[in-house]
Design a protein around this nucleic acid. Structure first.
Lengths: 237, 237
DNA sequence: TTGACAACCTACTCGGTAGTATGTTTTTTG
DNA sequence: CAAAAAACATACTACCGAGTAGGTTGTCAA
């Protein structure tokens, strides 16, 4: 039994993960998450067996069930980790103190690059969304899933807020802010469906694509990529 | 055994489906497809059992295995049907003889509405795409799946062609036409992730949403919804 | 040195499910 | 109307995979 439940806000949990060094409940835990993410990405949740995950680690079931109560719990943990990755990347940009347009662009660029750099986890996030729309196991787990989706909604709200700030500043009329932010993220997220890295982690290619996606997404509601935002591309390494 | 393989082009197969009345190999066949689409949508491919589908029809396995060789075959048939629906809706608009912008807008609006009206099948199409990115059963079935994805690519090409025609006519520079068309469709397709009809088949609501999505998608690469295209909204019933 | 506990592995159970083999009923056809 | 074929249903098999129970190995603290 190694459960270290904490009922923190998303952001607090994130910061704890980032800064604190008490975090690793052994890194075997993290290894399992990565392996599981890879398996779930490749075969989907229900087509992935615990034995698959164990085998990809050169281990057996026992190792996994020692850390996670059930297959569903493992999936949720991967989902949570995926959201942590996203928050960790984007949250700092959402606090950028400058014009609203640059702030949004920085968020979008960061998010888009993260999408491509952590495909395994991002695909799991997608599966979580569709799983939420459907019937997903027991009532107890449904509560957990609702909580996870709520985290995702908070993440999306980050973008919606930033978009509305831009719209206000630039006097743009958003007939339907909800649809606009959904569309905005749909564009940035679309890479999971068609992007696979040519070589192992081609950072520059990802940055170029991110720029094009963000340009499209900004144009979508009448904004354009600022020069400042373009400078930010250099910072993305 | 009732297989009526025909190696026709997508369009020919579609037209045959549309116009010809020899089509129904009994409509029990179509009933199974609908039920399967509903089940696959609700639980995903591998979490759906053949018994589930049969039960939702008030029947048993026998009925399904009489029409389909395997569960995978059934899935592929649903996928194919989904693509037929899309082609049947959009293909006529792609032949619209008018300015290129209105043509693209008509295609987009039709596609967006179809997405919302046939959610079951559209979700299966999504699953097919992700299934294609991963390992999907035997080599024999992989051939079939490749073929199905090829049909999907043809469908996307319809939009890409229309987009490039607009760009050419309006002297817009598309830095990366492929990414633009991917983004364009990503916006129109996004509704599967968040739209569920309030009341049974609220046509007007779907039309309104479609209009907003198409507006966003057009703006994405520098175009705008034409007045002619807006008139077309009336034709969508 | 010895307990105690974490971190696994092994070997099992057992429910669910794809697929099949074989009936039974209805429809079509000659 | 008879025979054949289509359109199902029933009753299996065989296997896979989630979860468990209990054993084994290492580590660390007193």
């Amino acid at each position: 039994m190694c459960e270290w439940d904490e009922r923190l806000s998303v952001i607090e949990a994130l910061m704890l993960e980032t800064t604190n060094e008490n975090s690793p409940p052994t890194n075997s835990h993290a290894d399992i998450l990565s392996a599981a993410a890879r398996c779930f990405k490749e075969n989907g949740f229900s087509a992935t067996s615990i034995d698959d995950v164990a085998h990809s680690l050169g281990a057996t079931k026992g190792r996994i069930y020692h850390h996670f109560r059930s297959k569903t719990d493992l999936f949720f943990a991967v989902y949570r980790r995926g959201m942590e990755i996203n928050f960790q990347a984007t949250l700092p940009q959402s606090k950028y103190e400058g014009d609203t347009l640059t702030r949004l662009a920085r968020m979008g660029l960061t998010h888009a690059v993260t999408m491509m750099a952590y495909q395994d986890f991002q695909r799991v996030l997608l599966q979580g969304v569709t799983m939420h729309q459907t019937g997903s196991t027991t009532a107890a787990q449904r509560v957990t899933l609702d909580e996870l989706i709520e985290i995702r909604n908070q993440y999306e709200a980050l973008f919606r807020t930033a978009i509305e700030a831009v719209a206000k500043e630039q006097k743009l009329v958003l007939t339907n802010p909800s649809v606009v932010s959904k569309s905005f993220l749909a564009v940035l997220n679309s890479s999971v469906f068609w992007y696979t890295p040519r070589v192992e982690n081609d950072k520059q290619e990802q940055i170029n694509l991110a720029r094009e996606l963000v340009t499209f997404a900004l144009n979508g509601f009448g904004a354009t990529l600022s020069a400042d935002a373009d400078l930010f591309l250099g910072e993305l390494k």
